[in-house]
Design a protein around this nucleic acid. Structure first.
Length: 487
RNA sequence: GGCCCCUUCGUCUAUCGGUUAGGACAUGAGAUUCUCAAUCUUAAAAGAGGGGUUCGAUUCCCCUAGGGGCUACCA
């Protein structure tokens, strides 16, 4: 049977590291198996729906560069792929369950449920097992049921979980798992009072109707599997294969959340991470190829991904490692590619971003010393905006007299117009000057570096000057000389 | 509280009974270098604890501990 997997986000927040990893593994598995990858939007919670989040799903995966074969934007034979457009389907199946007595209407009010919860909390250890709904309406006499119906009391529909026995299933990663029916959430809601299905109902019905063969998702779903299995059986279906992935956690050891710094993909994008780097890094949390190789393109991952190499233990997403990955990918780009990537960040920072040869020059300046694209403007701002006037202290190397430094700066200033062409040739001329003065090139250049860049730390000076233009560099050198000559 | 899952360097991981327990990030030291980076070399760094099984356990089983998840008319 052809493999069909799905990624079912709910549009309640932005796509983040954890959700994208789940999507990625599903995608990779579908590619490796020659299967189909389906996107299904689980928008059954009207209160939490945020339209921006829906758009974010499309934007994120377009940027990351992998896509589904069937989905709301793409169509497909098993649609619609928006759960809010499938309401009639869910009700028809729940009617069957109702008719067979496998589900029942519950008229309990939110207040009663709340009171029940409080009661159970205070009962504490005295009543260890029975937590959750007390199944009050499951045993409602027919007369009372009629009464509620004619009174028009709002109701939900609950699944009647078997009171005895146990339910088991096999997880591809975790093996066989068996749970006592007694410990399954007592009679979960299938249809809410607003007529929308809950996740439990919708995902079971849709996975079956969409002929999903494998469910790959985070381990936080593990506890609800027995209940889903019961639902499948109640509907006369058999469940798909399960594979529960280890969770991705933040540095605090908890499930990734907004508060721990940015985890949303759009934020990483804004900070100047490259999609390939991010994907590569995400893929390595919970899966590894052989423990030594860790640089992979999407294409390679598609071929190499293997469920057997998944890890069972949850993993912490390492931001420092992401920086390293990003640096590797930035360095692997060509000047031209990097120039294109840099342009929007220059523009965003209010710096020139249209001159391609200039951008390529900048790419050369920063390529080996930047971890994210957003660092670029700060690193090259001095090229476009004259830095604050340096102080004497900054200009004067330790243990060096002002006269010598001024003299060196003068010589440099005079030499500047002759620079040009290749950085190598320019550097050779400066090296010759240093030799002539009996100085090390580094010592000769430091005052000029401060004069030109405003800092002792900068991209390579010679190349920077060439990008900036020698005239501007001369002006700044002159300014530095003036500062040193002030008494 | 109950149920479920997990447990190798600080972090991501390799090992599918026999290894000096390997790699990577981060960290320290050194080399190189026009500063900073990048690059190269190098150092330190791990099998939670206790029982078994076995000629032999990081590896298989059990217990304990620790961590995480779930326990909604959210997904």
């Amino acid at each position: 049977m052809a493999v069909r997997v799905r990624y079912p986000p709910s549009p309640t927040g932005f796509q983040h590291i954890g959700s994208v990893r789940t999507a990625l593994y599903n995608y990779l598995y579908s590619r490796g198996q020659g299967g189909t990858f389906v996107l299904r939007i689980e928008d059954t919670d009207r209160k939490r729906f945020v339209p921006e989040a829906l758009q974010d799903i499309y934007d994120t995966f377009a940027w990351l560069g992998f896509h589904w074969d069937e989905g709301p934007d793409k169509g497909g034979a098993k649609g619609p792929y928006l759960q809010s457009e499938r309401l009639a389907i869910y009700t028809s199946y729940v009617d069957e369950l109702l008719a067979r007595g496998q589900a029942y209407r519950c008229y309990c009010t939110a207040e009663r449920l709340e009171g029940l919860r409080k009661e159970q909390e205070s009962a504490g250890a005295a009543n260890p097992s029975a937590q959750g709904y007390d199944r009050h309406c499951r045993w409602l006499p027919e007369s009372e049921r009629q009464e509620q119906e004619s009174a028009g009391t709002p109701s939900v529909i609950r699944l009647a979980i078997p009171l005895e026995g146990s339910t088991s299933f096999v997880d591809m990663l975790l093996g066989e798992i068996t749970v006592e029916n007694k410990s399954i959430s007592p009679d979960p809601v299938l249809i809410k009072s607003d007529g929308f299905p809950t996740y439990h109902m919708a995902n079971v019905v849709d996975d079956h109707l969409m002929e999903i063969t494998h469910i790959m998702r985070g381990q936080e779903w593990l506890p609800s599997v027995p209940m889903h299995v019961i639902l499948y059986h109640a509907l006369g279906w058999s469940p798909p294969a399960y594979c529960h992935l280890p969770m991705v956690m933040g540095k605090d050891g908890h499930k990734l959340s907004k508060r721990l710094g940015s985890t949303s993909i759009r934020d990483f994008r804004a900070q100047g991470y490259l999609p390939d780097a991010l994907l590569n890094c995400i893929a390595m949390v919970g899966w590894s190829y052989d423990g030594s190789r860790e640089l992979f393109t999407l294409k390679e991952l598609e071929e190499l991904f293997d469920i057997g190499k998944l890890n069972k233990a949850p993993g912490v997403f390492d931001y420092q490692k992401l920086d390293w990955f990003n640096g590797m990918y930035i360095r692997a780009k060509s000047r031209e590619e990097l120039a294109d990537l840099i342009a929007p960040f220059m523009k965003e920072a209010g710096l020139p971003s249209d001159d391609r040869s200039m951008l390529q020059g900048i790419a050369g300046l920063v390529q080996e010393r930047v971890k994210t694209l957003s660092e670029v403007p700060g690193m090259v701002r001095f090229i476009f905006e004259e830095p604050l006037a340096p102080t004497r202290d900054d200009l004067l190397p330790r243990k060096s007299d002002p006269e010598k430094t001024v003299d060196a700066l003068r010589r440099l200033q005079a030499l500047l117009p002759e620079l040009g062409g290749s950085p190598v040739a320019s550097e050779a001329r400066l090296r010759a000057l240093a030799e002539q003065l009996g100085m090390k090139l580094g010592d000769l250049l430091m005052p000029l570096r401060v004069a030109v860049t405003g800092s002792k730390v900068s991209p390579p000076l010679v190349e920077s000057i060439l990008v900036m233009g020698v005239d501007e560099a001369r002006r700044r050198a002159a300014r530095a000389i003036a500062i040193l000559e002030q008494r």
